[in-house]
Amino acid sequence: MAWTEDVALRVAKKIKTEDSPYTIGQLSHGIEIFLLNIINTAALLISSLAFGVFWEVIPLVVLFFLHRLLTGGVHLSNPWSCLTATLVLMIGGGFLLKYMPILPMPYAQILILIGIGASFCINYRYAPAEHTYVPTNPDIQKRNRFIVLILIGIGCILSIVLVEYSYRLSITYTLAVLLQSALLLPRLFKLVSRFENLS
Rank of each mutant, 00 (worst) to 15 (best):
134 V>I: 15
13 K>P: 00
194 R>W: 10
118 A>T: 09
109 Q>N: 12
49 L>Y: 10
142 K>A: 14
185 L>P: 03
193 S>H: 13
190 K>D: 13
117 G>Y: 08
116 I>S: 00
96 L>Q: 04
140 I>P: 09
10 R>P: 02
123 N>G: 04
38 I>N: 05
99 Y>Q: 03
157 I>E: 14
61 V>I: 06
108 A>E: 08
173 Y>V: 01
193 S>C: 07
163 V>T: 14
150 I>N: 04
59 P>L: 04
174 T>H: 06
43 A>R: 00
55 W>Q: 14
160 I>G: 01
25 G>I: 09
119 S>Q: 10
46 I>V: 07
92 G>H: 03
72 G>I: 11
164 E>R: 11
171 I>Y: 04
86 T>S: 15
80 W>C: 00
113 L>Y: 01
186 P>L: 08
10 R>M: 12
112 I>K: 08
161 V>S: 06
15 I>T: 03
66 L>W: 09
6 D>A: 08
197 N>C: 07
93 G>L: 09
118 A>G: 05
199 S>P: 01
63 L>R: 15
6 D>W: 07
185 L>Y: 07
127 A>S: 15
81 S>T: 00
102 I>L: 03
1 M>F: 02
60 L>E: 07
187 R>S: 08
46 I>R: 03
52 G>F: 01
100 M>R: 13
181 S>W: 14
164 E>I: 04
142 K>L: 12
51 F>W: 05
55 W>N: 07
176 A>M: 12
128 P>D: 13
123 N>A: 06
24 I>Y: 10
81 S>E: 00
48 S>F: 05
88 V>Y: 02
146 F>E: 14
180 Q>R: 09
28 S>M: 06
84 T>I: 08
198 L>R: 12
135 P>A: 08
199 S>N: 04
